[in-house]
Nucleic acid binder design. Structure first.
Length: 125
RNA sequence: UCAGUCGGCCGGACGGCCGCUGCCGGGUGGGCGUUGUGGCCCGGUUUGCUCCCGGUGGAGGAAAGUCCGGGCUCCAAUGAUGCGCGGUGACGGCUAACGGCCGCCGGGGGUGACCCCAGGGAAAGUGCCACAGAAAUGAAACCGCCGCCGGGGUCUCGGCCCCGAGGUAAGGGUGAAACGGUGCGGUAAGAGCGCACCGCGGGACUGGCAACAGGACCGGCACGGCAAACCCCACCGGGAGCAAGACCAAAUAGGGACAGCCGGGCGGGCGGAGCGAUCCGCGCCGCCGAGCCGGCAUCGGGGCCGCUGUCCGGGUUGGUUGCUCGAGGCCCGCAGCAAUGCGGGUCCCAGAUGAAUGGCCGUCGCGGGGGAAACCCCAGACAGAACCCGGCUUACAGGCCGACUGACACU
């Protein structure tokens, strides 16, 4: 595994990303925002991982978080925006999804979160 | 060989690429702080973080549930007793302690190895024992049975039938349970009424540290169950917990103490610094302003609000510490039936904090299924340290070892 990503440490940092641009895949939900405090010299993306108790017992949650972290470590250096923070909320399929698919999901997620599609009005009936 | 009982142990192995974290060693290094001075600069020093390289350690038998017992920390009380509440409950031992463990006793189950038991007190008191049943505990006469009593009917004059008053716990019936059971005697019928045996109660004495076991002899038998109903007895227990507790630093807002200030403004004067613009100081002068409460009012006085300086304390956030060497693991010897204890040797074995101990891939092995085979497919449990120990309980794919029991077969 390449270098693991920087992680979010505080609850407030997680809460700040609520309402950011989001993408939902089979294994996780990604939410992201640009960091506001431009004063900080930090120029690397940061990631937060949320695995709820509904995902299983402690062993299962550990495995899900580690797999997501490993996938991010491989994909993020090329695709993640260093000015942004990201939160990944795990979904039930995260433990069983093949690793290559997990990485493909991430590539798509970065794409969609950086360039959100304009909201498409559903055609009136 | 099959079926079973008990105890102990393991919890896939190896390799490749990449990654996390503790410790140790190294870096002619670099960066950011820190330390010694009254103050400043330079140099070097101390120490910490970060970066790089190398070595080494890194989840469990239950890490789980948080059910008991301790250590440790703070708070409260500071002795003892009483009251209340909670817990435990045969006996002996082990242990730091325990509701744990070992041994033993009693009761129950099993052909057996062996297993199970919330196992003090019901003659201290209160309460409950539904339904059924006549009666449910200082018990009881529904049916039945009986004829020493009284009355009536009938009559073949022996008797028979009915009623009343009684006797009777052997029989029927009810129930989980009905004043112990069987037999003989006995009687109007019966009844421990008497006797024998069994059961029950008391019990000299014997064995055992004890629980307890055996038991001469005595008693015709009285004393039902529930204490996981209240209760009584004995013993034990202060409360909260590492988010305990200790320490450090910065910013912001605000609090307290002390000192100074007719405390604000404008203009002027004097003094000091500077080439100067300007800045600093003032028991100086003039003018303007002078809030709120209390007080009749001018005056005078008090309190609150204010500014400056110094010091102190608290909260939030962050960091450090507590934090891993301990009732410690392994091996050997001795004592003991054992739990365990003592002695010797040896080892250091996770310390994270949005939380590391891993991610991906390959080979082999084990289990199940398919196939004649090569081989293919599918499964791989329960579960993640959070201050540390001793236990208990619960979950668990699959496998290994030892002792023992019962069948069958063979010798």
């Amino acid at each position: 595994m390449p270098k693991p990503p920087l992680t979010l440490k505080k609850r407030a940092e997680f809460l700040r990303l609520r309402g950011g641009t989001r993408w939902s895949g089979p294994a996780f939900l990604m939410e992201s925002k640009l960091r506001e405090a431009a004063g900080t010299a930090l120029d690397a993306p940061r990631f937060g991982f949320t695995v709820t108790k509904a995902m299983g017992n402690a062993v299962a949650r550990n495995r899900i978080r580690r797999r997501l972290k490993a996938a991010v470590a491989e994909v993020a250096p090329a695709l993640a925006d260093p000015r942004r923070d990201y939160v990944l909320v795990a979904r039930a399929a995260a433990s069983m999804r093949p690793f290559v698919d997990l990485k493909k999901d991430l590539e798509q997620a970065f794409q969609r979160v950086h360039h959100p599609a304009p909201r498409i009005r559903r055609a009136k009936p």
